[in-house]
Design a protein around this nucleic acid. Structure first.
Length: 462
RNA sequence: GGCGACGUACCCAAGUGGUCUAAGGGAGCGGUCUGCAAAACCGCGAUUCACCGGUUCGAAUCCGGUCGUCGCCUCCA
C-alpha cells in the first residue's frame, strides 16, 4: 500500500510519488492578512497540517512553504479606511495568524514569505511574460495575462470561456484589459491606493494576487514541485491562473498534485459576517471550548467533504478526545513492571486508512476500536505492564499525526483546582457530602470534571 | 446556461463488487462500579444504505434517470 491522493487536476485518486525520492515539496496558500482568520480558514490549514504530518509519519522529508499575502485590494483598503500603516496592519494580523496556528498545534511552514518581500521578483517575472508574448501592458500602466496565449487554460476547473456568465465581480476588477477573462499581473497605482506603490517598468503600482504564489513557491521549491494546496474557492481563478503564469514563465511542468479542501459551513449555512455565524478561534475559546477540541473537530471530517461546524460538535469532539486521554492516563498507571500480555496496535489499519486520501475517520475508527480492547483489558487486569507501555508508545506515535492528545492545555489555574480538590477530599473523608458536591459543582461550572477512582481523584477539562 | 460535490441509524461518519444481517464517535436505554456522580466496562440500536430502473451469480459500492442539498463560473480557505 502507498499513499493515494485525489488530484484536482485529474479528478482522480492516484498514487503519490514525490519527484525526488524521500522528499516532498509542499506549497500551501496562506492567508490574506487584512483581518483575523476565521475557523473556515483554519479548517484548510488543519487539513494541510494533517497532510504534512502524515507525509512525515510515512517517512518523507517535507519542505513546506506558505505565503502571507500582505498586499492586495483588501489590505490596502483596510489600511486606508482605518488610517493605519499597511505594514503595521498586516504585521499585526500576521502575528495573530501565527499565534492561532500555534494554539491549534499546527506545525509552522519552514518558510513563510510575505508578498511585499518579492515585489521585484514578481515584476521581473511579469516582464519575462510580456517578452514571451503572454502578457500585455495597458495605457494606464497595468499588465494583464493573455489567456488566449496559453492552450492549457481552464484545465483545472474545466471551464469553457464562451460558456461562462459574466460575473458581477468582473467589472469591479476592470483595469482596462482586452478580454474580460484576462487577469491582472500588475495593477497600476490608483489614487485610492494611497501611498502604497512599488516601481516597475510600467510605472508605479503593485503586483496582482496570483503572481506572488507563482514566484514565491518556485523561489523555494523550484519551478516543478510536488503538492500545492488551498481551499476549493482557490481552484478558480487563483490556481488556474497560477498554472498559466508559471507554465508560461518557466516552460516546465508546474505542480504535480493539486489538493483542495472543502469549505466549512456553520449550522448548515455559509459562514458570513452578515448572518452572525462568523467565528474566529478566539470566539470559540471564549465560550470555554479547548483548542484541542477545536482541532479535533476541524481535523476529523474528511477534507473533501463540507464540514458543518456546530458547537455541539465541538463538545462531542472534547468527549471523544477525553476518551483517548483517559486511555493514556490509564496506560501510564498500568505501565510499571515487566511482562504480561500485549494488544497488537492497529498501525497497519491506520496506515491503510490514511493512505486512502487521508481517510481520517477510518484511522480514528481503528484507534477507537483498539482503545475499546485496551480499556476492557485494563479493567479486567489482563494487560501486562509491557503491553501498557507498548500501547502508550503507539498512542504517542498516532498523536504525531493527530496532534491533540498529548498537548499541554493552558491550565493556568491548576494550583487553585488542586487546592479545591484537597479541600474536597478532606470533606469526603469526613463524610461531608454537601461540601464535597458543592466543590464538584463549582469546578464543573468552570468546565472541570472530577473523577473519584480507587487511586484517588483526577480532574480533566470537559 | 456551464462545471463540480454530496444524500448511510436520533446526530456526526467509515465503507471504492462477495468477509456488510454495514466500522467508529456522540446522544439514549438497562446492568456493574461509586457516598451520590463522573469515567470505564458489559448489553441493547440500520435485514438496510434518498427514490426508481438496469448490469451482475452477487451492489451501499458500477451504469442511467428522478428528487433533494451545497459549491464554483475572475482576487473568498
Amino acid at each position: 500500500m502507498s499513499l493515494e491522493l485525489f488530484n484536482t487536476l485529474t479528478r482522480k485518486k492516484s498514487p503519490f510519488r514525490p519527484l525526488e525520492a524521500g522528499q516532498v515539496k509542499l506549497y500551501t496558500c496562506g492567508p490574506t492578512v487584512y483581518d483575523t482568520a476565521h475557523i473556515g480558514n483554519m479548517r484548510t490549514f488543519i487539513f494541510e497540517d494533517l497532510l504534512r504530518r502524515y507525509l512525515t509519519y510515512a517517512g518523507y522529508k517535507v519542505l513546506h512553504v506558505m505565503n502571507i499575502t500582505d498586499v492586495d485590494d483588501k489590505t490596502i483598503e483596510r489600511a486606508i479606511r482605518e488610517d493605519r500603516d499597511l505594514q503595521e496592519l498586516t504585521g499585526h494580523y500576521t502575528e495573530s495568524f501565527i499565534a492561532d496556528l500555534a494554539t491549534l498545534n499546527i506545525l509552522p511552514a519552514q518558510h513563510l514569505p510575505r508578498a511585499t518581500e518579492f515585489v521585484a521578483e514578481m515584476a521581473a517575472g511579469i516582464e519575462t511574460l510580456v517578452q514571451k508574448g503572454h502578457a500585455y501592458a495597458t495605457p494606464d500602466g497595468s499588465v494583464f495575462f493573455d489567456i488566449s496565449s496559453f492552450d492549457g487554460y481552464g484545465q483545472l476547473v474545466n471551464l469553457q470561456p464562451d460558456q461562462q456568465r459574466a460575473g458581477e465581480r468582473t467589472a469591479e476588477d476592470d483595469y482596462g484589459k482586452d478580454q474580460a477573462a484576462d487577469f491582472a499581473l500588475w495593477k497600476a497605482h490608483k489614487p485610492s491606493d494611497g501611498p502604497y506603490q512599488w516601481p516597475s517598468p510600467w510605472g508605479p503600482g503593485r503586483p496582482g494576487w496570483h503572481m506572488e504564489c507563482s514566484i514565491m513557491s518556485t523561489h523555494f521549491l523550484g519551478p516543478h514541485f510536488d503538492i500545492h494546496c488551498g481551499g476549493v474557492d482557490n481552484i478558480f481563478p487563483h490556481h488556474e491562473n497560477e498554472i498559466a503564469q508559471s507554465r508560461c514563465l518557466f516552460g516546465t511542468p508546474f505542480v504535480e498534485t493539486w489538493l483542495h479542501s472543502e469549505h466549512l459551513i456553520v449550522d448548515g449555512e455559509k459562514m458570513s459576517k452578515s448572518r452572525g455565524n462568523f467565528y474566529t478561534l478566539a470566539d470559540i475559546l471564549d465560550r470555554g471550548y479547548s483548542a484541542a477540541a477545536v482541532r479535533y473537530t476541524l481535523l476529523t471530517t474528511h477534507y473533501r467533504q463540507q464540514l458543518n461546524f456546530t458547537f455541539a460538535k465541538v463538545a462531542e469532539s472534547q468527549k471523544a478526545l477525553n476518551r483517548l486521554r483517559e486511555l493514556a492516563r490509564r496506560l501510564e498507571q498500568a505501565s510499571d513492571g515487566a511482562g504480561g500480555e500485549e494488544v497488537p496496535a492497529p498501525d497497519a489499519e491506520l496506515r491503510a486508512a490514511l493512505d486512502n486520501d487521508l481517510n481520517i475517520a477510518g484511522a480514528l475508527g481503528a484507534i477507537f476500536g483498539w482503545a475499546k480492547e485496551l480499556f476492557g483489558r485494563l479493567d479486567g487486569q489482563t494487560l501486562g505492564p509491557a503491553g501498557a507501555r507498548a500501547a502508550l508508545e503507539a498512542l504517542r506515535r498516532y498523536d504525531e499525526i493527530l496532534g491533540c492528545i498529548f498537548v499541554n492545555e493552558a491550565a493556568g489555574d491548576a494550583a487553585a483546582i488542586e487546592a479545591l480538590l484537597k479541600e474536597r477530599n478532606a470533606a469526603r473523608s469526613a463524610g461531608d457530602w454537601a461540601r464535597a458536591d458543592a466543590i464538584r459543582d463549582e469546578l464543573a461550572g468552570q468546565g472541570i470534571i472530577l473523577e473519584d477512582g480507587a487511586e484517588g481523584t483526577v480532574w480533566k477539562r470537559g
